[in-house]
Design a protein around this nucleic acid. Structure first.
Length: 982
DNA sequence: GAGACTTCCTAA
DNA sequence: TCAGTTAGGAAGTCTC
């Protein structure tokens, strides 16, 4: 039996209760802040009774335990379902592929090998069968290739000479090649996607023996080389020569990311036993020829998801006081693990690997070790035994994995770091950097775990959700409405060095930190949503976390281009800083509107513009002269965009991007329809994830064409899109204001009071919501008729009342039905910004509610005055005053509060100081007169521990006053000033 | 002390 | 070798 201990519960306050009793409640607050307890002082030494008290999490463990089927030995549940007997002659193998990589090796004898290659690139697909067996599949015979336009005098007879010349040059550049670089050349008829080409022209498809030779081949063409019989050959750009090899394979074989593949009986060969040598730890290892892999499109029955095993883990290490743990010194003392089958609600493995004895925990398999080396080795074996498909945790890429690897290294454990599915492949942490305009720069680490997906929940949160803080604590409070029970790192060592009970306490914390990432992933349905994104865009699952937005569009573009014999050039990016004009923002008629304001929106504006006007690389013509040269006639064959760019009409050639967008939007419509009919919650989740992925994908096509630091920028597309958009908004405004007039028999003259990019806000003059809705619907229909299909203006909602503060800043009650408003909506103002302190957002939010919902401006004023009084009397809890900002760069020209603080913190303890990309929290403390804000910023914990006085004047004058004035002024006029003078 | 410039974050 | 877009408010610092 699993060791059962009756939960030893000492009654005590929960952490939240303790916090609540110590915090001050000067601010009656909106929902979000109620979930967040006030900042509490962290104890840094001396264990108290409370430290031995078990947490309420034990109740959760007990619940999980009660659902567990008892087993003799907890390790018995680790292994996967046994592999059924397979007869390769009779049984097909069907699995969901989740990861793919490639390597170079000798091609086995039984594989068809027409070029008699020795060593060649081999693809390796990893996956899981519906029965839950893990699979590694070696795919042979697929050669990487690039295209170049055939040189003018190229003739098929020159092929051997051409290959020899390339080989001579490539092997001289790269020595260690075992065999020649170029395997074969095909002469094919294709055309470039980049600019309209009326005819296909000859291209050379050059097959490379090793995938890794692609950059060398590309470079060779760029630099030029001599071909006997042809002369000097220099070609730039080459085509399709910058795509990752596994993706190339998937595109050509029509395999979508995370989709199902089938290996027919008789077509594959099993490894192990008397067969080929096994190289992986997967249950089933097979070889197959590339053309024999059958790809199933992820639709209908093939939308299902295999019973993937998800391991969530967390480690604790024993640090020294005030110093961040250092793997060369500080031991790993506990590792907690939870293993769940995707789609099931309960982890079937819950265990802790602990250093030194530890009291039992209900429903938890405890493994205690005397030596750290034993602990680490046992955990490594546990990974192989459980054989997880997905490994999750919080900051596992940034901390847990690197720490474990460094620690194993420090202890000279030679057999620890083999955590992937390929035998002999050592797991290492490699520094990586990711930087983009949207997400800034961030350093992280890449961990190779061949065949196992990694989902670092921290990274997922940072990518997908804009939050004020990304600590596990803050994220759980936000999404799960519950707190992680925080153990300050300085007491971890004390707990470890205490007794069985204190170590038990620590283990419970550790377990909960392993459980929470799983809860988050489940709640946000990350696995399903990411899989659907991989399926929709066709990229391998792990690209979604390790790469940017562009690869997803590239994958779709390549797939569509291939169908039409179009080739994609590998442009050298020269990082131009040239910008193009974006969307229009209509000058707002600022003010407080106590009449309904109807909002009309263009649905999927940019995608619909690209579809309506056939904007694409393949329909683009550089200039009029070129168009005339091709005998094209304006209007009949092409149109000139408001940006003065030329694109063909769809009647002459339908663009690829419009086709991709139509497919995406049609697929979304299908998914949404299916969703309406579906009742099974699991299938519903899949469909919902799909429609979301389809929408996001459609919207990112425009951004891709405008990405000047990108794979295939064509600003003619992006700037024409925005130009059309600007024209449309202007026209919409004009249309509405001209049609809805007293002169035309309407009650009032309509007025467009604001509009941004794809929307206009209309005051029809009517005083009730129902009439505004009716007119809004009528206007949307009328305007839509003025545009080309599929452009569509939609009536979406009414704001009433509506407070229009400035461009991109407004608030109002949001109505979609005339009976009752749906919610209060705020855009751009302090309530939705992460860089204002919580005091400001809650005060503004509460004032807005009083003004908009209660229509009680006086109440709002009194409330604001009350808060100001509390602030000046120091009655506001510290947590309300924390300001946070992202540390966006390592060098700043101007001094910045958050950066100056980060630097000071680095001097105190480099390990725990904020890193590039992290959000830095700070409080403005009292300083000498005239001190700049950056001199007065301090770490909230430091302020609390050292009882440093707060600069309340700063919070009043620099944080509260202006936002308050901005919302009160449109209502009270200059009277608003009196608010602050008392 | 005004205004240019830097930085962050949001709207769409 | 990788990295989606522009518009725009607001706060703070720098410069003269």
């Amino acid at each position: 039996m699993v060791s059962i201990t009756p939960a030893k519960r000492k009654e005590g306050l929960t952490a939240a209760e303790v916090e609540a009793s110590t915090g001050m409640t000067a601010v009656p607050t909106a929902t979000e802040s109620q979930r967040r307890p006030p900042l509490k002082k962290q104890r840094t030494s001396n264990l108290t009774d409370q430290d031995a008290a078990p947490s309420s999490f034990v109740e959760e463990l007990e619940r999980l335990h009660q659902q567990t089927i008892p087993v003799e030995n907890p390790k018995d549940v680790w292994a996967r379902a046994p592999l059924p007997k397979i007869d390769p002659a009779k049984d097909s193998i069907v699995f969901q592929q989740i990861d793919i990589d490639d390597y170079a090796d000798q091609i086995p004898d039984f594989i068809d090998n027409p070029y008699h290659l020795g060593e060649a690139s081999i693809l390796r697909m990893y996956g899981v069968t519906m029965e839950g067996n893990s699979v590694v599949c070696h795919v042979h015979g697929f050669q990487n290739y690039i295209y170049v336009p055939a040189p003018k005098d190229y003739r098929p007879e020159l092929q051997d000479s051409f290959i020899r010349a390339m080989n001579a040059n490539i092997t001289t550049q790269r020595k260690n090649q075992n065999g020649s670089a170029v395997v074969d050349i095909d002469l094919v008829m294709k055309s470039s996607i980049f600019g309209y080409q009326p005819h296909k022209v000859p291209f050379l498809r050059i097959y490379l023996r090793l995938a890794a030779l692609m950059p060398a081949a590309k470079r060779l063409f760029k630099e030029g080389f001599h071909v006997p019989g042809l002369g000097r050959v220099a070609i730039d750009p080459t085509f399709e020569s910058n795509i990752p090899f596994p993706l190339r394979f998937m595109i050509d074989m029509k395999i979508q990311g995370a989709s199902w593949v089938e290996l027919k009986a008789g077509k594959y060969r099993m490894r192990g036993g008397s067969g080929e040598r096994r190289t992986s730890t997967a249950q089933l290892e097979v070889d197959i020829y590339c053309d024999d892999v059958i790809a199933h499109q992820p639709e209908g029955d093939w939308s299902k998801i295999a019973p993937l095993r998800i391991l969530s883990f967390d480690i604790e290490c024993s640090g020294r006081k005030g110093v961040f743990p250092d793997a060369s010194i500080d031991p790993v003392i506990q590792i907690a693990n939870m293993v769940t089958v995707q789609g099931e609600s309960r982890p079937f493995v819950r265990n802790v690997f602990a250093l030194k004895q530890c009291a039992n925990i209900v429903g938890t398999h405890l493994m205690c070790f005397d030596k750290e080396e034993q602990l680490l080795q046992a955990w490594s074996k546990f990974i192989s035994a459980v054989d997880p498909d997905i490994i999750i945790g919080y900051n596992i890429n940034g901390f847990d994995f690197p720490y474990l690897l460094d620690r194993a290294d420090a202890l000279h454990l030679n057999d620890f770091a083999f955590l992937g599915r390929i035998m002999g492949n050592e797991t290492k942490a490699k520094d990586t950097q990711f930087s983009s305009k949207a997400h800034g720069t961030r350093n992280s680490k890449a961990i190779n775990l061949e065949g196992r997906l990694q989902m670092d929940v921290l990274q997922i949160m940072q990518r997908d959700h804009k939050l004020r803080s990304y600590t596990l604590n803050a994220v759980c409070a936000h999404f799960l409405g519950e707190q992680k029970e925080d153990v300050h790192h300085s007491i971890i060592s004390d707990l470890q060095n205490g007794n069985d009970e204190t170590r038990r306490r620590l283990a419970i914390y550790c377990l909960k930190d392993a459980y929470l990432p799983q809860r988050l992933i489940d709640k946000l349905m990350c696995v399903i949503n990411y899989m659907e994104m991989a399926r929709v865009t066709g990229v391998p699952f792990n690209y979604l976390l390790t790469r940017g937005q562009q690869i997803k569009v590239v994958s779709q573009l390549y797939r569509k281009a291939k169908e039409e014999d179009l080739l994609i050039p590998a442009l050298e990016i020269e990082g131009t800083d040239e910008q193009y004009e974006g969307a229009i923002v209509i000058e707002p008629e600022k003010g407080f509107y106590e009449v309904p304001i109807a909002t009309l929106d263009f649905t999927s504006l940019y995608p619909s513009i690209m579809m309506a006007h056939n904007l694409c690389y393949s329909t683009y013509v550089k200039d009029l002269k070129t168009a005339q040269g091709m005998g094209l006639v304006k209007d009949k064959d092409f149109k000139i965009t408001p940006n003065n760019d030329i694109f063909l009409n769809a009647s002459l050639r339908k663009g690829l991007l419009p086709t991709i967008l139509e497919d995406l939007l049609a697929a979304r419509k299908r998914a949404k329809n299916d969703l309406k009919k579906e009742t099974d919650p699991f299938k519903r989740a899949v469909l919902d994830g799909r429609q979301l992925a389809l929408k996001v994908s459609a919207n990112s096509v425009y951004g891709f064409t405008g990405a000047t630091i990108g794979k295939l920028p064509l600003l003619a597309i992006s700037s024409s899109v925005t130009a059309y958009g600007r024209e449309m908004i202007e026209k919409t405004k004009q249309c509405v204001q001209e049609k809805f007039t007293v002169a035309n028999g309407y009650e009032h003259d309509a007025q467009v009071v604001y509009g941004d990019t794809d929307s206009v806000m209309v005051k029809f003059g009517v005083s009730d919501v129902a009439s505004a809705m009716k007119l809004g619907t009528e206007a949307a229909k009328y305007v839509t008729e003025q545009f080309i299909r599929p452009i569509n203006l939609d009536f979406e909602k009414v704001y009433f009342p509506y407070l229009l503060i400035n461009k991109k800043r407004y608030a109002g009650l949001y109505w979609t039905k005339p009976e009752k408003h749906d919610k209060m909506d705020a855009k751009g103002i302090e309530t939705v910004r992460r860089d204002s302190c919580r005091l400001v957002s809650t005060v503004i939010e509460t004032c807005l509610r009083k003004i908009l919902e209660d229509r009680d401006t006086k109440g709002a004023e009194d409330y604001a005055k009350g808060v100001i009084a509390d602030l000046l009397q120091n009655k506001i809890d510290l947590s309300q005053l924390v300001i946070s900002k992202a540390l966006g760069r390592s060098e700043y020209t101007a001094k910045q509060a958050h950066n100056e603080l980060a630097e000071r913190m680095r001097k105190r303890d480099a390990g725990s100081a904020p890193a590039l990309g992290d959000r830095v929290s700070y409080i403005i403390i009292k300083g000498h007169k005239d001190a700049a804000a950056y001199e007065k910023a301090e770490d909230p914990i430091f302020v609390l521990d050292n009882n440093i006085p707060i600069d309340t004047k700063y919070y009043l004058e620099n944080q509260l006053s202006k936002p308050l004035m901005r919302i009160f002024e449109p209502i009270l006029g200059t009277k608003a000033n009196s608010l602050l003078c008392e």
